[in-house]
Design a binder for these strands. Structure first.
Lengths: 240, 240
DNA sequence: CCAACTTAATTAGCACTCCTAATAAAAGTC
DNA sequence: GACTTTTATTAGGAGTGCTAATTAAGTTGG
């Protein structure tokens, strides 16, 4: 009889993910000292860089990185002190800030973006077949975490390059996210997606077109026998 | 055909692992407040509990959690203040400490042990076959990180001198543990084995070779579930 | 139109994280 | 007995992360 602990596979996976998390944290701090840029600060720079052009306030940063607003506020001010971020007034709201990168900040952000690439050699130890399965598994997990609100939500699907509007027949979940590979409903769009990556303008315009067209149809709901109205609308507005 | 393939699989895996890391950190701090136990402190309690009976000093803790000794020292003293850890003298060395849990500390450790279990529902989203592959992939990655000194040593089968990979014909239990003298399957591979003893380099390299080559010889056909043949073919061609 | 929300951001206060550098003390070396 | 290594700590500093309270600017409703 083996005397090894009888932990099931799932628990051992959790332990393993923890190890990876440990590596991430450790590495983040290691580099922190070199670049005078702590983990949180680096992530804020990356986030601001990814959302350049949008008006990103303290709250948006806090939400994206799963921090409280005070914590985000302090970290941002540290970056301001270092001359990498500056405050622009929001056109709409005199209370709100629009944090933007300075020229030096953009350079820092470029460097910070690759901070996790030290994991790439480890990933390369998997053969291509394993990588695909591993990625698919990660996506499944991330989706569950998102649904359970364990992962912060970062940006709107509508501006995301992974977003595919109106491709399913299910009226509850007509859209599709190509990153987590799962259907999305309209109410999911209100939330922001933690896997968001800004789409190019063409894609964004395309998405917007489809959404606005369909919404018009939606205003005039038709119910067929056993056929949901949105399905008909989606089918008609779908485009290749 | 997906249009979102601009990033290769490896980079998306890194992004995904980052997300999991974010969830881990966030969740750790959430619970921290409830239990008046910060992430590092919780991990120290777990570690001491797992190594009860051994003489664990400050350095050992620091190494296991990838902290500097001063950081570990401070965290331990916070736990002493709370009455969960006490110092015992080392029999051999009057400088060294043997940190041990108090009765209350053992109770706290028991609770702290499950802190990452919030990930279990996410893991459960994977089917059993995926779980096994995911676990094996994690171990491969962790081993690379260990070799690169990016992560403290983990007590994994893959680095253990008692581990004999692929010595049985039973595809369910191809490996063998020479310590408990019992066959092991992929699902039995350990990440935190209490009987682990680090193998010498020759043995480690040998194990690694066999594990990475094995897939072509007799792999479980279910592994290829849902994955294009091209991927398996690529795996096929990658050995000398 | 002003009192009563609500929201954006900050301040204050606290405990802890994480680092480097310097120190103290014991143990091993020569 | 001085020299070096190892174990643990202290000192000092920037940063993380939280809650609670505050300031200021919008929004809403009687």
């Amino acid at each position: 009889m083996p005397t090894h602990d009888e932990l099931d596979v799932a628990k051992r996976i959790v332990i393993g993910l923890n190890k990876i998390g440990l590596a991430l944290r450790h590495h983040a701090w290691q580099k922190a000292d070199k670049a005078r840029l702590t983990p949180t600060q680096g992530q804020i720079l990356s986030f601001l860089d990814a959302h350049a052009g949008e008006c990103v306030g303290t709250s948006a940063v806090a939400e994206a990185l799963a921090l409280t607003r005070p914590t985000a506020s302090e970290a941002i001010h540290a970056l301001v002190q270092k001359g990498w971020v500056k405050r622009e007034p929001s056109p709409a709201d005199r209370r709100a800030a629009c944090w933007t990168l300075t020229e030096a900040g953009r350079r820092q952000a470029e460097a910070a973006k690759t901070w996790a690439d030290f994991l790439l050699p480890a990933v390369a130890a998997l053969d291509p077949n394993e990588q695909v399965i591993f990625l698919r598994s990660l996506m499944k997990m991330i989706r569950v975490l998102q649904v359970q609100q364990k992962i912060p939500i970062a940006a709107m699907c509508v501006t995301c390059r992974f977003f595919r509007p109106c491709v399913h027949d299910d009226p509850q979940k007509p859209h599709h996210c190509a990153f987590v590979d799962a259907p999305l409903g309209d109410r999911d769009l209100q939330l922001m997606c933690s896997d968001h990556e800004t789409a190019d303008e063409a894609h964004a315009a395309h998405v917007w077109n489809i959404l606005t067209q369909r919404r018009r149809r939606h205003d005039d709901p038709r119910v067929h026998d056993g056929v949901p109205d949105a399905a008909a609308g989606a089918a008609e507005t779908r485009r290749d």
